[in-house]
Structures are given as structure tokens and as C-alpha cells.
Design a protein around this nucleic acid. Structure first.
Lengths: 310, 310
DNA sequence: ACCCGTCGACAAGCCGGGCTTGTCGGTCGA
DNA sequence: TCGACCGACAAGCCCGGCTTGTCGACGGGT
């Protein structure tokens, strides 16, 4: 037989009151029950914990040591329960956020700072991924939440827009459009777009394609572009692209951003998570997103009803 | 209802095997019992710990946190049991030793060193007392063991001789006997004895009186002597006394020890403890005393059968 | 000195909770 | 589509913890 917390609770009660009878009142059982349980506890431990000298109960040295341990144990058990509840409430724990490059310039750091302020005991682990890996990362439980440009997801994956960003034109410093105060999208009709492959960044890809189509043309793509290589191509003057306006915060050398004529195209950055067993901090995160968006004046998308957290 | 360690054991089993069925084999109950108990645990916590998706069992974030806590708790509970047993065996814990001045010159430090070697995890707290307080200290549980010159004790107090020490004559450096190679006890007949009051040091008092009586005289006492004041009196030439030979290790300034003619009188240093609820380390201590006495060649007393540890 | 009050242990029976057996629904692989 | 496997549900059993009743022991009060 193994010791149980109930027996420890009884033992602590008896030891602290130095009396079976009075301790019995504390724990709402008869005195005999305490005698039985503490005897059982002593038997399982193989150690006498209390010296009963009728009229007085004294702790043995072993009992004194065990009493201290029991108190610690009971406190730790209670703490463990509270901690589990806090984790389930999303107040503490670790939220693993996967993000795409689009989020890194402004959205992610601001979100993390805001979250750290609102939920100081929630640890956040971040990891950069390609948007094309979002589903796999979530399904394999390799992350709890992703930030990526809006795209379609199969059932089982939920999403909600965090913010809508304006798209701007990224050109090399030496490009003829670099000095223009504003550009109309059709002016890029003949340009070669340094766009990532669709399977790496579907949301971003679709946003750019859709923008161009809205302007009445299909962009010609530089098939050699992939990954961060695209930025270098633009800086080197080998092409252009549409990028989120917040890239201005970390604009690569040799590249210039030019605003598009209003009303310009945009790109929606989504929070994405498992629908079935979302991390308990996901609702907190979404709430934080909404707060921050209002605070910063980030425009929301018109489609914001599309998904709701559990 | 409160969580119990049994439920935690079940939960750990299920979480580690990721299966109710297989965990059931580990803990020797039916799968249904695990379902019931873990459901009960979740209900008492108010937290879902496991996601059951038939075919697979997954931990929720709260479950993962609680699992870690449960493992710690179970390990701590086991450790507490082992610790209590070790304390009961006298291998670890704290032994509070009260000692009289007689033991401090040689016996106590050697005993402590020996004990530290044999029982490195047993902490020893020492405290100097007057022999007259030994009973009260033990009865009030203000110490677990005392070292004091042999004297009689009421029932409820046991004692055993640690060693027998030779008595020597302590005189001031300027005393006529200071230069004598050996002294016969009767030579002290006219001297004033700087003896502590009997209620402060009964064993020592009786030993000196008995020695003098054995030599055929009753010592004349300096009624002003008490406490460490006696040493000063001797050093100042205001009297003499019989002292244990080991005082030579820490001989006060201005005082000389002169051996007594063989076979000289002795003083037995006793270990003294509660008979009813002795500290579990007392037997270990007595064993250590016996070992050390043999090692050092300390003579034992002829009366060593008088008391036995429980 | 006696008696009564109090305390913890022992004994026996009850009763609830934990365990078992039996079964079902759901999911995945063949 | 079927079978295998898994966890949940249901019902009954049965052990273990609790209760009631009692005793012996110690102390204090009168």
C-alpha cells in the first residue's frame, strides 16, 4: 500500500493540534478514523510518527521530518492544481507561435510586447516558418498558433484576421519608379515579379496575383526567385514585387518602397490555429490582437466574421 | 473532493503510455477504473488533462503541466517516506547533545568527529549545560542526549558510561605541589577545594568527595567557588581540586595538573538519554562511543551493564 | 484517596467509493 | 465494408474507510 494525501492531511491535522480528538473536528471525521488512518500510514511507512502517551501526543523525530515533508507535499499538490487551472485558462504556460516573414517586420514584435504586458506569466516561443508549412506544424502539434497571410485551410484549422496591411511596391533604388511619389499598379504590368513559389507562401502569392488581376493584368514571374533570394533580386534591379507596408521598418539595403494609388490592394495577416484542441491561450491571444489592432489603428478586414475561436 | 496520490499515479501511467488500456496493465486495474479515476481527477481540478480522440490519447497543455507536477509530487512523496525511515533509523536527522564542561576537553570533540565520519548525514547540535540540568533538558525535550559525569537518575532516564577518566590534582603554578611528579591524595587533606556546588555538578561533586573519602578525609570546600570561577581560584592559588586528566588539552593559564598515585580515583563520563522515547540516533551514538573507546583505548567502567539502550 | 473527565485504542458493523464485468459507439486500417 | 481496437457508459460487487460503541489509562479536582 502506498501513502495517500488524505492520510497526510490527517497526519498534519493531528500533529498540528497535538491531539487526535481535536484534529478529528478539523477534518470532520471521528477520532477513531484518524487513529486508524495514521496507524495505517505508520504501517506503510514502517515508521512510528507519533508518540501517544494518553493525555498528550508528541511527534517522533521521524514524525517531525515527515510532517514538514507532508506540509510541503500538500502545498505542492494544491499549487499543482492551481497551476493546471491557470494553464487551462491560458494565463500561464507556453504558447508556441510560428510566423511567416510577413509578420516579422512589425506585427509579431508588437503582438509579443502587448501579450507580455497583458499576460506576463505566459511564455511565448516563436519560430519562423514558411506559410506552406502552417497546416503541418499545427497538425503535428509542433506549434500552437501561426501568423501567416490569409489563405484557405481545410476543416480542422481555424483562422481569424489580425490586421489588414497595405501593399506597396518594392523596387531597387535604381529603378525608374523608385523616385515616384505614388505608383499605379498597372505601371508594373511589364515588370518581372520576384514572387515566392505558391507552395511556400500561398496567401502572399494569391494576394499579389489578385492585386494584379484587379489592375487588369497577370504578372510575369521570375521563376528563379525563392526565399529571401527575392529581396536580393529586387535590390539588384532584376524585378519588383508588392510587399506589406510594414517592411519599411526593416527595409533591406538597396530597396525602395513606393505607395500604391488609393484604394490600394492589401494583404490580410491571419492568426491560424487548430480547431479541435486549441491551445488554451489562443483566445487570449486573439483578444490581445483585437486590443492591439484598436490601439494601433490597424484596419481589420471586412471578412472578420469568417472564423471564431472555440 | 481533493486529489489523491493514487489518481496522480494513474494519471502519470496513462500520460506516459498515452493509452488507458496499456496503462491499466501497468497499474494492475481495469481500463475502466482509469477512465473513472481520471475523470474524477479532472472534475476535482476543473481541468481537462487528456484529449481522448479514440485511437489516441493526447495531453492538453494543462495536462502536460500537471503531469510534470505529479511526477515531482510522487517522487517527493517517496522521498519523504525514505527520509522518515532514515530518520527513524538514526541515520539522518539532528541529534541535540547537551554536554558538561567535563566532556569538552577531549571526549566531545572526538565523539563528534567520529560520529561525523560514521554518520555523515546526521547533524549534531551541541549545547553546554550544567550537569544539574540534564534531567530537565531531557524531560522537556530540549535535548536528545547528554554527556555528564555519572550520577543517579530517576526512572525514565537511562545512562551508559562512555569512558572512565583519571582524576588529577589541579593546583596553581605557584603551589608547593605544582612541581611534584606525583601526589598522594592525602596530601590535599588541608587544602581548600574549589568545588562546584553539588546541585550544579552532582556527578563531579560526588566523584571528588568519594575520592577524598577513599583517601580517608573529607575535603574542606570553598563555598565561594561556583562555575568557571573555580579555575580562577585555583590559578590564583586560593585552593586546589581534582580534575579529569583530559583538561590537560585545554589547561587554563596559571594552573598545573599533577598525577595522583596509582591506582588513582576516576570519574565516569556518561551518556544520558530518555528511556521512553529515545532519539533514534541514540543507539548509533552509543555504538559510536564504544567504537571510539576501543579505538582510543579509553578505559570503560566496571559498571557498564547498568543500563542498556532500548 | 477516590472519582470523574478526557484521551487514544480496540472491535464490529455499515456504507460509500473504487473496482470489476459487460457493453456500446467511434475511428482507423485492411 | 468489416473487423480490430480504444475509451466511455452502466450496473453490480466488495473492500476499505468511516461510524458507533466501548475500554483502559492517565490526571486533575475535590
Amino acid at each position: 500500500m502506498e501513502p495517500e494525501l488524505r492520510q497526510m492531511r490527517y497526519f498534519v491535522a493531528v500533529a498540528e493540534r497535538r491531539s487526535f480528538t481535536r484534529a478529528a473536528e478539523d477534518v470532520y471525521v471521528a477520532q477513531q478514523a484518524l487513529s486508524q488512518q495514521i496507524k495505517a500510514l505508520e504501517d506503510t511507512l514502517g515508521v512510528r510518527l507519533l508518540e501517544r502517551t494518553s493525555r498528550r501526543v508528541e511527534l517522533t523525530p521521524a514524525g517531525a521530518a515527515y510532517l514538514a515533508d507532508c506540509k510541503r507535499l500538500l502545498a505542492a499538490a494544491a499549487r499543482a492544481g492551481r497551476h493546471a487551472r491557470a494553464v487551462a485558462a491560458g494565463e500561464v504556460g507556453t504558447l508556441r507561435i510560428a510566423y511567416t516573414l510577413t509578420a516579422v517586420y512589425e506585427t509579431l514584435p508588437e503582438l509579443i510586447a502587448h501579450l507580455a504586458e497583458r499576460l506576463p506569466k505566459l511564455k511565448v516561443e516563436t519560430r519562423e516558418i514558411f506559410a506552406g508549412d502552417v497546416c503541418r506544424m499545427l497538425r503535428d502539434d509542433r506549434c500552437d498558433l501561426a501568423l501567416a497571410p490569409r489563405t484557405g485551410y481545410p476543416t480542422g484549422i481555424d483562422r481569424r484576421t489580425v490586421r489588414r496591411e497595405e501593399l506597396r511596391v518594392a523596387v531597387g533604388d535604381g529603378h525608374p519608379l523608385a523616385a515616384a511619389p505614388v505608383v499605379d499598379l498597372v505601371q508594373l504590368k511589364g515588370e518581372k515579379f520576384q514572387l515566392w513559389p505558391r507552395d511556400m507562401a500561398p496567401g502572399y502569392y494569391d494576394a499579389v496575383i489578385a492585386a494584379c488581376r484587379g489592375a487588369g493584368f497577370a504578372p510575369s514571374l521570375d521563376e528563379t526567385a525563392s526565399g529571401s533570394n527575392a529581396w536580393a533580386g529586387i535590390a539588384a534591379g532584376r524585378g519588383v514585387n508588392l510587399v506589406v507596408a510594414s517592411l519599411a521598418h526593416q527595409l533591406p539595403r538597396g530597396m525602395t518602397l513606393v505607395p500604391l494609388a488609393e484604394p490600394g490592394p492589401g494583404l490580410c495577416l491571419d492568426a491560424v490555429w487548430r480547431a479541435e484542441h486549441p491551445h488554451p491561450a489562443v483566445p487570449r491571444f486573439l483578444k490581445g490582437c483585437a486590443e492591439l489592432a484598436r490601439l494601433r489603428g490597424w484596419p481589420a478586414d471586412d471578412e472578420q466574421l469568417s472564423a471564431r475561436p472555440a
